[in-house]
């Protein structure tokens, strides 16, 4: 388990725990009370830490290298009954964006999401979860496919941003994202969006317009990353912690500002501490939300979706 910089105390306790277990095994001395004592201490420490994470610490958890990614969720939720569909039918298959039909307890759902890699090689292969225009166009193709066969759509969002590359500009990154946002408002099927890691700006909202939008407890969603915000507004990279706080980018901030519809609780210590538990929770939320959304007539659902977003924004009128 990779520990984050604010988890040092937990690291120390875990070390002690390992030592105690080793001593027990080597010497045959009864260490069980010491072990259980340390285990309790670790949980206490985690509870203390995680009940009071700062915005920047949550950003760190959202980027934890062992955090489950989109395909992990899909595999579990569909019990491996998933067929990945590739390509935008124009340029190529974007590896940073994945999607396909899968079933949840027998019911077919279109899953779409950004995919990050688990090691250096795979991170490059997945372009760090930064999609190009063809990724967004693949996503749109799959959404339309779902709509055609009246299947609901679930998007899993985890991206540090849409890729800012030369070819991306040539192929219209702006247009691709704009088109997706626009078309997502017109989809006649239910759309659920879940931020499972990073929700960075246009890259996130490009698959992020939904009837219900959820954020996992330790994720962030905003217009810019704290680092870039610091570099632009403070003109140095050093203010990422202040920027994270100022941006109000955590799940609870976003929920309190009525910009997302719900928060999904993560296991103690973050999703990576108990992937199965978070998969189960997410599956449950998807099932419940779909049941609720399907009760609505499609036209009504679209109007509700549009009204939800047109109500967003605070301003003064004198």
């Amino acid at each position: 388990m990779v520990l984050l910089d604010f988890e040092k105390e937990i690291g120390k306790l875990q070390e002690q725990l390992e030592k105690a277990i080793n001593i027990g095994q080597e010497t045959g001395v009864d260490v069980s009370s010491m072990v259980s004592d340390l285990e309790t201490k670790i949980i206490d420490e985690q509870e203390k830490l995680y009940s009071n994470l700062s915005s920047w610490e949550r950003v760190q958890v959202s980027r934890h290298p062992e955090r489950p990614y989109t395909l992990n969720y899909i595999d579990y939720i569909t019990d491996n009954d998933f067929i990945e569909l590739h390509g935008d039918r124009n340029v190529k298959d974007d590896k940073a964006m994945v999607g396909g039909f899968g079933t949840i307890d027998g019911e077919t759902v279109m899953f779409i999401g950004q995919q990050k890699g688990i090691n250096t090689k795979m991170r490059q292969y997945r372009n760090f979860g930064m999609a190009n225009p063809e990724g967004y166009r693949k996503a749109l193709r799959l959404m339309k496919l779902a709509e055609k066969f009246n299947k609901p759509i679930v998007t899993l969002i985890d991206t540090p941003g849409a890729f800012p590359g030369l070819e991306a500009e040539e192929r219209g990154q702006g247009e691709a994202i704009a088109r997706n946002i626009y078309e997502m408002f017109k989809l006649k099927v239910p759309v659920i969006c879940i931020i499972i890691g990073e929700g960075a700006s246009g890259g996130a909202i490009g698959i992020g317009v939904g009837d219900k939008v959820f954020m996992l407890e330790n994720t962030w969603y905003s217009v810019i990353s704290p680092e870039s915000c610091s570099s632009i507004l403070w003109r140095t990279w050093d203010y990422k912690i202040d920027a994270a706080k100022a941006l109000k980018l955590t799940a609870s901030d976003m929920f309190n500002n009525k910009l997302v519809d719900g928060i999904i609780k993560e296991p103690l210590g973050g999703a990576h501490n108990n992937p199965k538990e978070i998969f189960k929770t997410v599956k449950k939320v998807i099932k419940e939300t779909l049941t609720e959304l399907k009760k609505q007539d499609p036209e009504k659902r679209i109007t509700t979706r549009i009204n939800k977003y047109t109500d967003m924004g605070v301003f003064n009128e004198n």
């Binding site: 408002f185 700006s201 246009g202 217009v223 915000c229 967003m312």
Partner: peptide, 18 residues
């Protein structure tokens, strides 16, 4: 986007497109 309005600003992309 206007960074000082953070996610509110981001959501204007959706609002205007809607």
């Amino acid at each position: 986007a206007r960074m000082m309005e953070a996610a509110f600003s981001l959501m204007q992309m959706a609002k205007t497109s809607a």
